[in-house]
Design a binder for these strands. Sequence first.
RNA 1: UGGCGGGUAGUGUAAUGGUAGCACCGCAGCUUUUGGAGCUGCUUGUCAAGGUUCGAAUCCUUGCCCGCCAGCCA
Length: 560
Amino acid sequence: MESTDKPKNFIRGIIDRDLAEGKNKSRIHTRFPPEPNGYLHIGHAKSICLNSGIARDYKGKFNLRFDDTNPCAEEQEYVDSIIADVKWLGADWEDRLFYASDYFEEMYAYAVRLIEKGKAYVCDQTLEEVREYRGTIKETGKDSPYRSRTPKENLELFERMSKGEFPDGSKTLRAKIDMKHPNLLMRDPVMYRILHEEHHRTGSKWCVYPMYDWAHGLEDSLEKITHSICTLEFETHRALYDWFLDELEVFHPQQIEFARLNLSHTVLSKRKLLRLVNEGYVSGWDDPRMPTLAGVRRRGYTTESIRNFCDTIGVAKMNSIVDIVVLENSIREELNKTAPRAMAVLEPLKVVITNYPEGQEEELDAINNPEDTAAGTRKVPFSKELYIEKDDFQEEPHKKFFRLAPGREVRLRYAYFVTCTDVIKDEKGEVREVHCTYDPETRGGDSPDGRKVKGTIHWVSAKHAYEAEVRLYDHLFAERNPNDVEEGKDFLESLNPQSLETRKKCYLEPGLKTADKGNRYQFERLGYFTADPVDSKPGSPVFGRIVSLRDTWAKVSKKA
RNA sequence: UGGCGGGUAGUGUAAUGGUAGCACCGCAGCUUUUGGAGCUGCUUGUCAAGGUUCGAAUCCUUGCCCGCCAGCCA
């Protein structure tokens, strides 16, 4: 590869070699083949970025294909969400959106060819019999008694199967390979099963449906895919993939396997995510706490951040668990550069500027983004009564605490130097409000006499502040380890209780009232927040935290 | 006494026989109109034992450890 900024991995190494050898006439064609039985999650993003990234960098093509060969769990809603998510990630399939179900006719014809060749037969064994005859890891299998049917018989039976003459499970079409093969998958695998089930696209047209191993290679072959990239658990399937394509003597793509993504503290299993949705633990697949693409998008993650994340984690064949902080870092890195700053107070403490004229108001200039001068400035209203963050005041300051304390002068960001003169407490001894004096000479936050303050704190004008709702959900749904649930325990028991969403009132500078849905902000020192694209209403955005506190995660990790 | 695939700092990933690098985490210093921002620096690694070689993370042998496979799921 000529460019060094492109990701390096073993798959690109294979492609470089293939290209050097002129394989497939130096054509590169990849695909992403999800089954529409759930929403896509961050793990899928890895595959999408890998496949579409290769097509992009090598000037090849990339297909989006729905592997909809099992009507039982597949739904149009999932198809729609997957299309939206892949598009959001910026993968471009141009006009090549395909469905395995579009190939059912061709697959059928190929199956007939295999039967004619004497390489496939109709089997009447029950599920239990098939299992029993398959043998085990240590013992070889036994031939099915139906294995010796003639091609003529098989042809006739297969036709009757597809016409719906037999009930579900009564017959299968099986490849005739080797019941003693050390690889269990090669012991006469099922190619077609009978399923009198409504398919989300083909309706009731079919009642025999192809199995993954039979269908997938054909789909790849039909689309002239050059590199069929899939996850590690399909490694043992490659022998079968190759066997079918060799027997059929059709275009033969190369299957390459890589390790799927595991994220620490994160559930990345469609089955489990489906339970969270169905059992009401979350509001839906796009709940901001979900690791689905719809979820992280709603939470405030950007396309760019997910793509950078995928580049960062790399591609290999080793099973590994990527630390969740790597994901968080990817969005933090971007938002630090792009998100406008705003002042906000989550835990208010009232501050009265005693020497500020009663009823006076003024507007001060605040920088929108110190990382990006082009973002300009905005006006922030100031008045006699303010709110500051409770944490920004300590009556008896610790050694390393440089913010507000009795007798101490600090800067109100973009406003004035103030000095704390009084602390007002209630009968319980709790600090209710703090009185300060301000220095009118320090307007804007700099002192003409050059005196320095050690702390700068953020604030909002009590009178002007916009009272909004913030949601402090913690990151995703967290477990100590994704696949490491104790024996016999439900994974729900290991969910991090801090994932639970907390809603609270907060005070924001008034300009945020008109924040558009999906806008992202850095609330000074409090973190990154986004105006929820789903729950926000015009004029009253609801803000959700995008990145959770690093400290929280440190605590969780220590406990775990 | 099955088959297949893997083991590189704490984590993840490069280096296809030629200086073991990068990112995240961690630590230290500096800096900042709030830092979880910025800058600079630092610690830590080739599963083990043999072998081939001038030279091995890389090739060979043996061992150890880990993952996947016994759906009419994908």
